[in-house]
Design a protein around this nucleic acid. Structure first.
Ligand SMILES: [Zn+2]
Ligand SMILES: [Zn+2]
Ligand SMILES: [Zn+2]
Ligand SMILES: [Zn+2]
Lengths: 163, 163
DNA sequence: TCAGCTTTTGTTATCTTATATCGTAACGGC
DNA sequence: GCCGTTACGATATAAGATAACAAAAGCTGA
């Protein structure tokens, strides 16, 4: 039997990262094209680095990696790129980790929920209209005008529970 | 008519802060008593400062205030007190603001949801089992073992929409 | 009481994360 | 080619958090 019956695909570390990175870059490139904005080499490279890590990674971690091939990189370099990528929805920020992770489903606005493993550090982005709607209802009942929401849960992923 | 029909009491800035601070300190003192732990003068004072602000306040903001009357205070002073207060559930951390706020309902374990106003900076803690349960269900369906969750929503509170 | 342990606080230094500012270069419509 | 806009380079600094070790204060049981 496949492990996928017990461990969701997103938690499997065996898939082809190369392909999943390429897919994310292609998607971002197409979206930028359609929006008439520029996915510059720098921005593209930062997005690649985010995906290469394939788990939440800090801005200074990205900076170190970028510096190896782009010696002029400095904190603003990374933060500008990340700001752009987040504005466009290609990358999410994990508030509880001060870290950034690629979005599985860019191009369509959504309110993600993150399940973060305290052991391996991986973060699974899931989408659940139920949670978002419950929050929306609560807010409107209180007369609160929502503009953004962040839902993050931490614990142990299936793989790390075995250890 | 009272404004409370349209604006939830928590958003009203007209209540007696002095009493609400005193109530929070008393509650904390009683809980510490019952748990056999020490609400030292320092910890008590930091809790007071959190409540005096009456909205999320950063660690260094608290530090500046504490220094005025306690010149030996340094970053570890504040962070230790905040760690203690958070462990005991007297204070919550707002991840998206790197800020700390007093808990309305200490002493009983709960998973709060915060509605944060981007204009006035106030944060309303609400409790909704629905959201927590939805997240729990999601996690268990994925085989994820939850240990903590953070739900924060940002927008405009009723008062700040009028402006 | 006071020795010995635990908890709390003092002190200094350092680390991590993020922004401000200003100047220069590249792009794109005309 | 000109010019407004956008993006990038470079330096400095702000803001948030922790490490490490020493000193003081509280507790506990001879
Ligand atoms: Zn996403
Ligand atoms: Zn894990
Ligand atoms: Zn609370
Ligand atoms: Zn407001």
């Amino acid at each position: 039997m496949s492990v996928s019956k017990t461990i969701p695909v997103a938690w499997q570390r065996t898939h082809d990262h190369g392909q999943c990175i390429a897919g994310a870059i292609d998607a971002a490139a197409r979206i930028c094209e359609s929006r008439g904005i520029r996915l510059t080499p720098l921005r593209r490279r930062v997005l690649e680095l985010v995906w290469e890590n394939h788990k939440p990674v800090g801005a200074y971690g990205l900076l170190d990696e970028l510096k190896r091939e782009h010696s002029s990189a400095a904190p603003p370099t990374i933060y500008r790129a990340l700001d752009f990528l987040m504005e466009q929805g290609f990358v999410h920020r994990i508030q509880s980790l001060n870290a950034y992770v690629g979005c599985n489903d860019p191009g369509h606005s959504h309110k993600g929920i993150f399940l973060i493993c305290n052991d391996c550090g991986d973060a699974l982005e899931i989408e659940d209209k139920g949670v978002a709607n419950t929050i929306d209802r609560f807010a409107s009942r209180l007369g609160f005008l929502l503009t953004s929401q962040s839902v993050e849960a931490a614990g142990l992923c299936p793989g790390c529970q075995e250890a």
